[in-house]
Design a binder for these strands. Structure first.
Lengths: 238, 238
DNA sequence: ACCGTTACGTGCGGAATCGTACCGAAGCGC
DNA sequence: GCGCTTCGGTACGATTCCGCACGTAACGGT
């Protein structure tokens, strides 16, 4: 693992790993390999043995639930504040969900064996991972409530903010179609919401690329779930 | 902890505790106190220090998310196949959600300190609890997808089946009003769904009491989420 | 026995979202 | 530069669910 544009010599870009005591972080460098992930590429497939754990650096990954009728709904979105699969920290070997790359970028990839070793031998490591699982659980619960109660436009805004935080730019590739699948709504529904957000001046859309123009406006259009989940993951780093 | 109508001397009625090796189970009897919980009674309050962990025996507890506007949505339902709060197993001290009693009954209550001791000293215990957290996470994710995609009547059926499994009777107290709050829909919406399920012969309703008449019919009316979550918790016991 | 409370069946107009479809514009490969 | 594909703006009827509200029936307390 090489240092990636960061103050600390051992910083890697993923906030969970970077929150480890310096000693532990230095120690695990050999176990973490920087891997580039292309958009739409699967990182874990439902029902298959998990070979590795991914700590995103500037990639954004998604965990999705697939329903019987083939519909998919995003149930977790993972950037450098977290890792996939959470279940690896819960002594699971088989991936219970599919996860894939939403925004191309790099991840720090750790073989599952090394991950499990650390879970048992390093209490600070285990503690950090479990706290992160707690945030993931909290966030999944929040999504359950959000999907039930909040309007499409609010959820669009929430999603854009969450993703922008994770890629750390205000401009990234995203089609209406893709966002519609993530939110579990119609593509036309996203188009209407995006159109409305654009008219209000919160965002700009241009053929598969969004730009966040006015963050405050976007936060006002979003439901509380954005802030609540953000806080949960921030708290998990302590 | 006294034995409760069960083959094993140390069986307690909660499936998680009962899945422990006999030695561990016998060992923890002194730490688990059988407590009766009344309907609507809180067992954990959001933001407060968790004093204990509850392993339901014949009570059913609910974990709910409260939104800014005061709406509440059930994000986890917990019976003898699980425990609350899951986060206690993730080294958390503060309850991130509110949980309360949905169907009155008994729980095995363990002081949080004893619980944490066991998490660190008994690998089988920790393993079991973490697997259970995994099921809770999976289930919360499933609810997120379910709330987004499945109709009110399907979710009603799902809820009735889940609760019936947990109380292990086909008849229990439940008002439309309460179920509406749990599902995050209108009371009238539940009334319509219940009316429809009753006409089909799946259930019978009588002033605050449901009776499951035809389980097969109810399962057919339910979404897949019932079976999927049930399987997840069953798998977590191994 | 009476009355207040609780539970729930029902109805109505409106909003949100759905499914589907069509079309034009922007980009990409050749 | 041309044609194909992708993307997204837009429309329309159907459906689901909403908020609200009213009435009736069952039950519980006094």
């Amino acid at each position: 693992m090489r240092a990636v544009s960061s103050p600390s010599e051992y910083s890697c870009g993923n906030r969970v790993l970077d929150a480890l005591p310096a000693l532990d972080l230095a120690d695990l460098q050999d176990d973490v390999q920087i891997v580039s992930v292309a958009a739409a590429q699967y990182t874990h497939a439902l029902g298959e043995v998990m070979e590795h754990v991914d700590f995103p650096i500037d990639a954004v990954l998604s965990v999705v639930a697939t329903l019987e009728n083939g519909d998919t709904v995003e149930v977790g979105t993972v950037g450098r504040e977290s890792f996939v699969e959470a279940d690896a920290a819960l002594d699971l070997l088989i991936a219970p969900r599919t996860s894939f790359c939403q925004v191309a970028g790099r991840v720090g990839r750790m073989p599952i064996g090394r991950f499990q070793d650390r879970m048992t031998t390093s209490p600070p490591f285990a503690r950090l991972m479990l706290h992160n699982v707690s945030a993931a659980l909290f966030c999944a619960q929040q999504f359950a409530a959000c999907n039930s109660k909040h309007a499409v436009i609010q959820r669009c805004a929430r999603w854009l903010l969450m993703t922008a935080d994770r890629v750390d730019t205000s401009r990234f590739a995203l089609t209406h179609d893709f966002l519609a699948i993530m939110l579990g709504v119609r593509r036309a529904g996203v188009s209407e919401a995006a159109e409305s957000l654009q008219r209000s001046g919160a965002i700009e859309y241009h053929r598969g690329t969004v730009t966040l123009v006015d963050r405050a406006l976007l936060e006002a259009a979003s439901c509380e779930c954005y802030g609540v989940c953000r806080t949960a993951f921030a708290a998990a780093l302590r």
